[in-house]
Structure formats: structure tokens, C-alpha cells
């Protein structure tokens, strides 16, 4: 029983044993920050729901090595992303860049929001035009009876 507690404590630290890329890639903290930013923004193509940062697949290992090489050669972030997109396509980036090919991705949510707003506006305005009293509306012939309960 005495050995139980240390064992339990050790078990709490098992995730650390699976840490990827232990140790820093760059001495320069600024470069290291850019490196970490990039690898968390790039999808591992071999295991598509993981970023390069989270993946131990060998393709992820290779791609991290290439990104380290590009950064140490003084390439900008945009150039590194371009390197990856040229080879693996826009899909490699978790946040596709705005371009002719991805414009639909970026604009579709706004467009749908707009459509929803128009629909909501029209529905609300239509409801506002309905009679508030319980009597049959002489114009439409419909009765507001069913809705009468929630009004004083």
C-alpha cells in the first residue's frame, strides 16, 4: 500500500513521456516562438486531425525538420507556408489563406449569416403585423386564438 501513492503520482506524469520534440529547436526565443506557431498551424497529412506539433508520424517529423531548416535559412513565415502549400496544397494549413481558390470558404459563413438575418427580419416583421386581439381578423380570416394564452 505504501508504494501505491508514488505509483499513482508517477502515472500522473505519463503524458510528459509522450511529449514530442523535447528540447528547443532554436536558441533564439523569437525564432523558437515562430517555429512553434507555424507547426501548430500546419496539419500533419499522415494523420489529418493532428497538427505537426502534436504528431509523431514520421512525415510530421520530416516536415518539422524542413521547417526548422527553412527558418534557420532566414525564410519568412509566409515563405514557409508557401513551401508547404506548393507541395501539399491549401489543405495543409488549418487556416487556409485568403485567395481566389479559398474565397468561398471565407465568405460562406458571412453570406449564410446575411441570409439568416434577412429571413429572421422578415419573419419577425410578419409576426408584428399579426393582430394582437383574440378576434378573427377580418382581412385574413384567421384566428389568433391559439396564441392568446401567453398574453394578459
Amino acid at each position: 500500500m505504501r508504494s501505491f501513492l508514488p505509483a499513482l503520482l508517477l502515472m500522473m506524469f505519463t503524458p510528459l513521456a509522450f511529449a514530442i520534440d523535447a528540447g528547443r529547436a532554436f536558441d533564439d526565443p523569437e525564432l523558437q516562438a515562430r517555429y512553434e506557431e507555424i507547426i501548430s498551424e500546419v496539419r500533419c497529412l499522415q494523420c489529418q486531425n493532428e497538427s505537426l506539433k502534436d504528431s509523431n508520424a514520421f512525415l510530421a517529423v520530416d516536415l518539422r525538420r524542413e521547417i526548422r531548416r527553412l527558418l534557420s535559412e532566414g525564410k519568412t513565415d509566409a515563405e514557409v507556408y508557401e513551401f508547404l502549400v506548393q507541395r501539399y496544397g491549401e489543405f495543409a494549413l488549418y487556416r487556409p489563406r485568403m485567395s481566389g481558390r479559398t474565397i468561398v470558404l471565407w465568405l460562406a459563413p458571412l453570406l449564410l449569416l446575411g441570409v439568416g438575418a434577412v429571413v429572421a427580419f422578415r419573419v419577425v416583421r410578419g409576426r408584428m403585423a399579426l393582430p394582437i386581439d383574440d378576434e378573427t381578423d377580418p382581412e385574413t380570416g384567421s384566428s389568433a386564438e391559439g396564441r392568446a394564452t401567453d398574453r394578459p
Binding site: L45, Q46, L59, D62, L63, R87, Y88, G89
Partner: peptide, 10 residues
Amino acid sequence: GTVGIDWGVY
């Protein structure tokens, strides 16, 4: 895997 990366092999 360097050439593989150039060819977009995954």
C-alpha cells in the same frame, strides 16, 4: 524523405 516532401508525398 526530403524528395518525398518535394513531391508532396504523404
